[in-house]
Design a protein around this nucleic acid. Structure first.
Lengths: 196, 196
DNA sequence: CAGAGATCGTATCAGTTTCAGATCATCTCA
DNA sequence: TGAGATGATCTGAAACTGATACGATCTCTG
């Protein structure tokens, strides 16, 4: 184990010997570190968002895309469908989202943002950007942009395909409120009324 | 919700509207998808490595760096120290690593690779590279290299600082090598007696 | 030198997350 | 019409994570 690590992030990449097959050349290593770093810091930054980073992502998706089912949302975000139920429960409890029936398919609950949801998202976004900047502090502004774009591109490519299989695992670790068992949700009466 | 992903990876980045604040522009989203994709596919690829991807990373680190303590290794890899114990247990059970006492500090167990460990690592590495190529299939070869390097650089920079807090109040700056404390001279012949 | 405080690896426990599967209502299709 | 599939929710169990305790050992200070 080689002793001292560079104190200057700029030296970091320069010190990586890409021919030595060391841990720093392992994609899995850097992905894990970045991801866990993001989860940890992100959880703090969006602590007031039910569901933490995952709840935040739900808000992002539903405020920028067409209303859709919980299941599709789960796929889109790479979140387990069961966990998605609980995340939306939490968001709904805080009046940040509303579940509405899909008129064309009564199995589906569409997820809609409330005004409060929009507002919280705005502040949460700012907080997260700060965290992200810190996380990528070792990179220049250009490099940060580049990393964002490459990651997104990779995620949208084969990466995302593999990741967004049905009922995928999710490891964003902010605690979702523990489910209260035997808590079958009452069927909203207004929903039954809107039967076509 | 436009759920369908582009079939041509080349179109992916072209379709991302970086001004719309959609989910695809979220670093947390792409990080999560990539990380989970890696974990899932990587677990399959290194299924015969005890501890999966994490066990693999242990092998990488101990075969390329100086012998060090489990704790330092845990920090280096961003793994919880308790989990590290179990991972090494598993690796040791399969005779892929050996724990040896550190002559200068009898609390420390250094982790050494065996020949079998080296051999398994070689095949595991090949399998993982295949997985990684698939994961980054949406990127050109240059882009893949770029992503690897940027991620590593970010991980080694501030990112890693935030990530390497597996041990609660660890104030350490990145996984630290074995402490450079003023070491006492080795205790003669105490070695065999300290074996647990 | 003695003792306080810190550290390392391991054990233990509890809470959280993940996963698989069941259920009910609803939809699709032959 | 009915079989098979689907979406949301529920349930139980396994896996994971994190906190903490503990014994052995180390470091440092008076």
């Amino acid at each position: 184990m080689h002793a001292s690590l560079p104190t200057s992030p700029t030296d970091a990449a320069a010190q990586i010997d890409w021919t030595a097959n060391g841990i720093e050349t392992e994609l899995g290593w850097s992905l894990a570190l970045m991801f866990h770093g993001y989860s940890r810091a992100g959880s703090v930054a969006v602590a007031d968002v039910p569901g933490g980073p995952r709840g935040y992502q739900v808000l992002v998706a539903i405020t920028t895309e067409e209303p859709t089912s919980q299941l599709a949302l789960a796929h889109r975000l790479g979140i387990d469908k069961t966990a998605m139920t609980y995340i939306i429960d939490a968001l709904e409890t805080d009046a940040l989202v509303e579940r509405r029936p899909d008129l064309r398919d009564r199995r589906i609950r569409q997820v809609h943002p409330t005004e409060a949801g929009h507002a919280l998202l705005r502040t949460a976004r700012v907080a997260l950007r700060t965290v992200e900047d810190a996380l990528m502090g070792g990179l220049s502004a250009d490099e940060q942009t580049q990393l964002r774009q490459l990651l997104a591109k990779a995620a949208l490519g084969t990466g995302a395909t593999a990741a967004s299989l049905p009922d995928t695992n999710s490891d964003l670790n902010l605690p979702v409120p523990a489910p209260e068992r035997s808590r079958r949700r009452p069927q909203p009466t207004t929903e039954t009324e809107t039967r076509p």
